[in-house]
């Protein structure tokens, strides 16, 4: 599966968050091959399921109201035992340096980016033209 590129383009609607995360989990399963039943393998796939679900839901919540239906694009790239997933959307720029929510105050949001940072080894955000690209990677 080395240096191959998979892309999934979805409409920016909550309904499709499940397709995004289940596809991420399937890609991760393919990467780890048959030791998907080992705890390490299950964690690896669950990590991508969570990260993609959070990133996709963020893109949807901040999607612009516009005539043309907004779209979110996921790309998966696997190289030297590292799976990289990046999420492209046409929303306004944002930052991933958000503070860790203080649990005692019973916060209701802000958990998303916290989860992504915790489950992924490496998370970067960049702006390309008028697209946000958040890319997340984890090494097997």
């Amino acid at each position: 599966m080395n240096n191959s590129n998979i892309t999934l383009t979805l409409p920016a609607e909550r309904l499709f968050a499940r397709v995004a995360r289940q596809t991420a989990s399937s890609v991760a399963d393919l990467v780890i091959g048959d030791d998907r039943h080992e705890p390490a393998g299950r964690d690896f796939s669950h990590a991508f399921e969570l990260a993609v679900s959070e990133a996709f839901t963020n893109s949807v919540t901040h999607a612009r109201e516009s005539a043309t239906p907004q779209v979110v694009k996921l790309t998966f790239f696997f190289e030297q035992r590292q799976l990289v997933v990046s999420v492209h959307d046409a929303n306004d720029p944002f930052t991933i340096e958000t503070p860790v929510p203080d649990i005692e105050s019973y916060p209701e949001n802000g958990f998303g980016l916290l989860i992504i940072r915790k489950v992924m080894d490496h998370v970067t955000y960049r702006r390309e033209g008028n697209y946000n690209i958040i890319s997340m990677s984890k090494t097997l």
Binding site: L10, V19, T23, S26
Partner: peptide, 26 residues
């Protein structure tokens, strides 16, 4: 709505495409 999945022509990706199809059908 249109959803597109592009993948390399390798046998392992038949499994990926079928799982994505199933979760969309759901």
């Amino acid at each position: 709505s249109i959803i597109t999945l592009t993948l390399p022509g390798e046998i392992m990706f038949a499994r990926l495409a079928s799982q994505t199809a199933s979760s969309l059908a759901d």
